[in-house]
Amino acid sequence: MNNELENGETLPKYCDYFKLQLVEELALEKDYRELHYGKVAVIGRFSSEPEVICLENVLIERMPKEYRLSTGALSVLLLDFDYDKVYGEPLTHGHLCIVRGEVILCNLEKPTSPRLSTRFIHENLRKLNESQQKEYLQDIHKTYKPAINVWHAKRIELASELIQRKLELRMLDSNQ
């Protein structure tokens, strides 16, 4: 399928490598048209409650105070998680880990509803007029939330430091 539309707008291209994303980047995205589309690697704290399995953000100590969020302030759902997908040491509630998978949007009100992607949203929007687009985006935002369709996970140590280093590398890469 062509990534360019008639009006010159391009559809998001699937990210075919595990791009580092922060829990915060997924959980706080207000415009789902801008949500990452494709594979991700996300570092966080594993949380397994009886009904919900999620990945929580981790406090990054060296981040400026105005940008810091305490550990567990935000989370994203982990879908299709299975303990057989964990490499190495077992993963239990509260452990720090890296999760690799794919970013999707999950309907929290109707979990059996189809999962959506950023590209799906773009494709649907092009069929609507401007007022319908606004309503569509509002409806999606009310009922759908970003989640990670888990492919595998691994327990790690020093998550905050690892995130810090990866952010520094990202910053260096963006300056080139």
Rank of each mutant, 00 (worst) to 15 (best):
L125A: 00
V86F: 04
D84E: 15
R119E: 12
N107L: 10
G101F: 03
C106Y: 14
L125W: 03
I104G: 02
E109V: 09
R126S: 15
H93R: 02
F120L: 05
L74S: 00
L108K: 15
D80I: 02
V99F: 03
A73K: 11
C97Q: 02
E66Q: 12
L91T: 01
L128N: 07
L108D: 11
P111D: 07
I98N: 00
C106E: 09
F120S: 07
Q132M: 12
V103I: 15
K127P: 00
Y83R: 13
I121F: 04
E89N: 11
H95E: 08
G94D: 07
V86W: 02
T71H: 06
H122S: 01
N129Q: 07
C97G: 06
Y67E: 13
K127S: 01
T112M: 10
E102Q: 14
H95T: 05
L105M: 14
V103L: 06
E109H: 04
E109Q: 12
S70W: 01
P64R: 06
E102H: 05
N124F: 10
L108E: 15
V99A: 04
E123Y: 03
K110W: 05
G101A: 12
R68L: 09
G94Y: 07
D82Q: 10
Y67G: 07
L77P: 01
D80T: 12
T118S: 13
K85G: 03
